[in-house]
Simulated scan of single mutants.
Amino acid sequence: MLGLQSALVSLLFILADGALEVDVASGGRRGVDESIPVIEIRGEGKPMSAAQIRHLEEISNGGPLDIKVEKTFVPAKCVAAAKRKDFVSFHYKAFTEDGKKVDQTYGVGPVTIQLGTGMVIPGLDKGLRGMCSGELRKIQVPYRLSRKAKSRVWKNIPNDEHWLTFDVEMIHVQPYSEDGQFSFLDMNNDTRLDQNEVVGWLQRMKKEYGKSWKNEDIDNVSAAKYYIKYFDVNGDGKVEKREWLVVMRRDEDLMASRTDLSSKEKGRRRDPGVAWILDFNNDGVVSYKEVDEADELIEKGPTLLPIFKDEL
């Protein structure tokens, strides 16, 4: 009996509506104002991961953590402020949260990427927007915006830091243009694309920058075949620059005419690179559904063929 009483001393019944707390040991009653429930959580199984802990921290701060930007130098004249799809070249020094330098481009050469296309960690991509040639910024990136597959360019950037800091010097901003986009794809500068070159471009993007398909079932060779057929107006197995331009402008016109539909789609804005083909309905947005079905649709081949009334 004494053992039972001893066990009951620490047992509290807390009513679901918080109206009353009963202390079994003393038999007394206390009102709501006097009752402060104490919850003890005992861990069973594996401890929480760093990502789970950081998620809880973000919630406690009132919402997801975002980047922090400090403009340390802004040139008096800005010819072009960097925006999505622009090509930017920049130097950086990268530091961990405790101030340890983990990487820098000085002495090696600046990095050149296309903004908004998955070539860099999301937080740095966001922090580079609006920068002008010659501008200096300190960009702090929280964990949730620092995830990126390892690659040659980003191999020294850690994936497990609560905060990363980048001291960035913008070297050059090249505004997006259709000619510039084709040159970016045309790795051997012969003004035409073939299947092997498209496959090589996809492999380079993954190896150098960690940029890959969101749907892992997409095969690069199948995607390259689809891409060539999608742009190949004369059917010779190669895409001349003039062919590419006329098909791109056709798609841009289709996108502009379907803005009402694109606003309802959930997904990402259309990628101007090889992933252009994933927007199967040409509304300007690659929906989650299109990504999920992409491997099957690519194998079937394009339904919208590059056929025009006037020959090139």
Score class of each variant (00 low, 15 high):
101 K>D: 07
56 L>Q: 12
82 A>R: 08
234 N>D: 09
85 K>C: 13
78 C>F: 03
157 I>S: 00
60 S>E: 13
176 Y>M: 05
187 M>G: 11
71 K>N: 15
107 G>T: 08
152 R>N: 10
211 K>R: 14
60 S>I: 09
257 S>Q: 12
233 V>S: 02
47 P>K: 02
18 G>A: 11
233 V>C: 05
94 A>T: 01
213 W>M: 07
2 L>R: 14
234 N>R: 03
253 D>A: 15
265 E>W: 01
151 S>K: 02
217 D>C: 12
283 D>H: 05
243 E>R: 00
41 I>N: 06
310 D>W: 13
306 P>V: 06
168 V>L: 06
116 G>F: 02
22 V>S: 13
255 M>A: 11
81 A>Y: 03
67 I>C: 08
125 D>I: 07
21 E>M: 10
45 G>K: 04
87 F>D: 14
259 T>D: 11
300 K>P: 01
141 V>L: 06
312 L>W: 04
179 D>Y: 09
34 E>I: 05
23 D>Q: 06
299 E>D: 10
222 S>R: 12
246 V>Y: 06
70 E>C: 12
67 I>V: 12
94 A>I: 03
72 T>S: 07
104 Q>L: 11
221 V>I: 11
102 V>D: 03
208 E>Y: 04
167 D>P: 10
75 P>H: 03
198 V>A: 06
264 K>G: 15
266 K>V: 13
292 D>H: 09
166 F>H: 05
241 K>A: 03
192 R>L: 10
45 G>I: 01
21 E>D: 07
223 A>I: 00
82 A>H: 08
240 E>F: 05
193 L>H: 00
174 Q>G: 09
91 H>A: 01
151 S>E: 02
163 W>R: 08
84 R>T: 12
196 N>V: 10
177 S>F: 08
62 G>M: 11
2 L>M: 13
203 Q>D: 11
249 R>V: 04
99 G>W: 07
270 R>W: 06
